[in-house]
């Protein structure tokens, strides 16, 4: 049996101490050690429909920038979103967000399947394409649930209500006074907002989010809940 202790791995989520405090149960997802669930009551999938917060920082992701980046990524089989600040789900479950005419953020699917990300990272980028260490520069948190936008309105000045902020829309903005990228990519029928922001501020943001969620009885959720939402149609 693999020892699932986050404090022994080479790569350690900036939040692993927070997870340990919350009695998280860890599981191996691809090469990453992630929180499966925080409690064994089986309530998390249901709570996540209302308001949940998950740490996906250990899941694979990468980024490319430069005048040649979109064309090069397209030749690697990436379906490129048409406009800046939009995101597109890829066939294999991963997601690509276009942050400007010259910049892409590529993140793995909820199964931790890193096929596309690994493949891109192993290629030698073409002329005018520069890789970005997105797995280390940015943390990855996901806020799920019908009350997510209401909660966000306490810490972010962008109107994220689902009829104003469409599926696949991207906002680069300030969240709790730190810069971040918000991508709406729903899990099944449940609204889901992915936040990519300064990895050094991860604990700060995590605490801010949980504090803002308290009013709505939001809770931390593991990937098991994320996967169960993702599976619903």
């Amino acid at each position: 049996m693999i020892e699932l202790t986050p404090d022994k791995a080479l790569r350690r989520s900036p939040l692993y101490r927070r997870h340990l405090q919350l009695n998280a149960q860890f599981e191996q997802l691809g090469e990453a050690l992630v929180v499966g669930a925080y409690s064994d009551t089986g309530m998390e999938p249901r709570l996540a429909i209302s308001l949940g917060l998950a740490d996906l920082s250990c899941l694979p992701r990468t980024g490319f920038k430069g005048p040649g980046a979109p064309d090069w990524a397209a030749t690697q089989g990436v379906e490129i979103p048409s406009a800046p600040n939009t995101a597109l789900a890829q066939a294999d479950g991963s997601m690509v967000a276009k942050l400007s005419h010259q910049e892409l953020l590529i993140v793995s699917g909820m199964q931790g399947d890193s096929g596309l990300v690994d493949n891109l990272n192993q290629q030698i980028p073409g002329t005018g394409v520069y890789s970005l260490p997105r797995a280390d520069s940015h943390s990855w948190l996901a806020v799920t649930g019908l009350l997510a936008a209401e909660m966000f309105s306490k810490i972010c000045a962008i109107d994220l209500r689902t009829h104003k902020f469409a599926q696949g829309q991207v906002a680069q903005t300030s969240i709790a006074k730190i810069n971040g990228i918000i991508v709406r990519q729903d899990l099944g029928t449940t609204p889901c907002f992915h936040i990519f922001s300064d990895i050094a501020s991860t604990e700060f943001l995590w605490d801010c989010l949980l504090d803002a969620m308290e009013e709505h009885q939001g809770v931390a959720i593991g990937v098991a809940a994320i996967r169960s939402l993702d599976a619903t149609e």
Partner: peptide
């Protein structure tokens, strides 16, 4: 009210 004082921590913080 709700105020934010961002805190950045190195991975070695603890």
């Amino acid at each position: 009210g709700r105020s934010f004082y961002p805190a950045r921590r190195s991975n070695m913080h603890y």
